[in-house]
Amino acid sequence: MKFKKTDLNEVLKTLAREYTVFAPIVENEEKKFMPWAESKDVEMEGLNTIKPPKDVLFPNVEKMYRYKMGLEGFIEEIFPEDTKRILFGIRPCDMRSIDSMDKVFLTKEYVDSYYAKRRDDATIVAFGCTEAGRTCFCESMGLNPNDAPSADVMMNVSADGEDYVLEARTEKGEELVKKLEGLITDGGEAKKDTKCSLVINKAEDLDKKLAKMFEHPIWDKVTKGCIGCGTCTFVCPTCYCFDIDSENYGAEGCKYRCWDSCMFSDYTRLAGGANPRPTKKERLRNRYMHKLSYFNERYGETLCVGCGRCVEKCPAHLDISEFIEKASAAELGKEDK
């Protein structure tokens, strides 16, 4: 199936009648996923967004319940509204990151009802990259920049560059494609030859190796330049930590949750003030270990999808892909068991 590139706006308009369509839109000098409207400037191709689309499913700030104290006191849950949404045009790395978030929020006996609601309501149209950023290394992490296996609909540019080629892969995807009758035609050959810019040497069993490297001297060296900001975690499509806090006005208020960062000093601060991760060494070690080893242990896959965002944006030019190579090549010492 395919539709003409020039019909993109028509397609989005048609979908927007029944869904809230989050598309890569350039506004306020920034490209990000936001609800489509006719006046918006959509940019499908080019590089991926700086901010990942994760906040459509896992918002930056989410109110959970409101309350009032006193005689007329109450507690009332705030639940995500019923909105059928489409995530339109997310890249394979970001699709894979949603697979990981699904595991976190929906499996192992605990279902996060807020995430589940948004996820159920969402149909995802992935888009094969036509260009790789200089920090993209998803192929080395086992992904394919041209294909997102778990998407509801996979979309690619056609070989002749004139069309977008679609492939519905799930029931939700079929349903979405049905709405486009009249705009889509049969056939179309997808162009799938985009290559990642960075190819890195990653040891096959790096996760198991790292599990033995908690005390390895590598951490002293690689973490020294870190300034402990939250940039890497907030631009990362797979960082899912949150904090819960409240906002109170007199006797009323609400509880909300918001993204947190393991790079912040208060992340592991205990009630009495003690902090088991007192310096950047322990904090960055946790971030890298979580991405490359702890997550594998619990969910059987690596949490870094190689999107390269943190590599591009780290103010101190720390580079997780460089770390992966260093750790892959590192010799284990006697303290590493």
Binding site: N28, G228, C229, G230, T231, S261, F264, P315
Partner: peptide, 24 residues
């Protein structure tokens, strides 16, 4: 509205040299 509240501006700044920032 674009700010992601990452504190990189604070952490890179030599003027932001308090032992503990008010924000923490």
């Amino acid at each position: 509205d674009k700010c992601i509240h990452c504190y990189a501006c604070r952490n890179a700044c030599p003027a932001c040299n308090c032992v503990e920032c008010y924000a923490d």
